[in-house]
């Protein structure tokens, strides 16, 4: 379904079910709005970017992060336990010989606490089906041309396990502070569909 008419129709159906749940005591007053606000305020790619920048400037943190991401992200005040259930996090780091990219082929599993709401393309059948079959071509469509000898690892997230990529630190950034470095990191870089 698409278009304004279809959208108005489903909006009405959603409102109807919501009212029914309120009448049956399964939704409290204001609960919907509160949960929406919490979700939108809860995570953003700035969180993932902070982790990446710390990993760039602190080799010991990087090691802890790659060995035990759930524990290490606590050092920068982040956690994977804020949602409905705690999720296992694995962080993988790009190098000059290997590039990592994340997908959820079965649905839409994504580290929301670290990246915020996922983009529609991440949840699309188009991305989920193709990135495991031909990652090099998919990355090229995102504007990321990898050398032919760069190995590509595709990580398939699941209900219990989430993944995040640490991009390679760009050249010429030796003089930047950790905060400035974090400002270079994008959401797509943390998914693996951009260089940084």
């Amino acid at each position: 379904m698409s278009g304004d008419h279809a959208s108005a129709a489903i909006a009405g159906q959603v409102r109807h079910v919501e009212t029914l749940l309120e009448r049956r005591g399964l939704l409290a007053d204001g609960e919907i709005d509160r949960r929406i606000d919490e979700f939108l305020a809860g995570g953003s790619p700035a969180n993932g970017a902070r982790i990446a920048a710390r990993a760039w400037v602190d080799p010991a943190f990087r090691e802890r992060l790659l060995a035990d991401a759930n524990g290490a992200i606590g050092e920068v005040g982040l956690s994977m336990s804020g949602g409905i259930q705690e999720q296992r996090l694995k962080v993988v780091a790009n190098s000059d010989t290997e590039h990592h990219v994340v997908v959820c082929t079965l649905c839409s599993c994504y580290p929301i606490a670290l990246l915020g709401p996922s983009p529609t393309w991440y949840k699309s059948e188009a991305y989920r089906s193709r990135v495991v079959r031909d990652p090099r071509a998919v990355l090229a469509e995102f504007g990321l041309q990898l050398p032919p000898d760069t190995r590509i690892a595709v990580w398939d997230a699941s209900a219990e396990s989430r993944y995040m990529v640490i991009p390679r630190r760009p050249a010429g950034t030796a003089g930047l502070s950790e905060v400035e470095l974090a400002g270079l990191v994008t959401r797509n870089g943390l998914i693996g569909t951009a260089a940084v």
């Binding site: 959603v14 409102r15 609960e31 929406i36 979700f39 709401p117």
Partner: peptide, 19 residues
């Protein structure tokens, strides 16, 4: 891209979380 493309999407998300 916004977090949600229409109010009803946000309501569906929140309803599911509540249930």
């Amino acid at each position: 891209e916004p977090g949600f493309h229409a109010d009803w999407e946000a309501h569906v998300f929140a309803m599911n979380s509540a249930l």
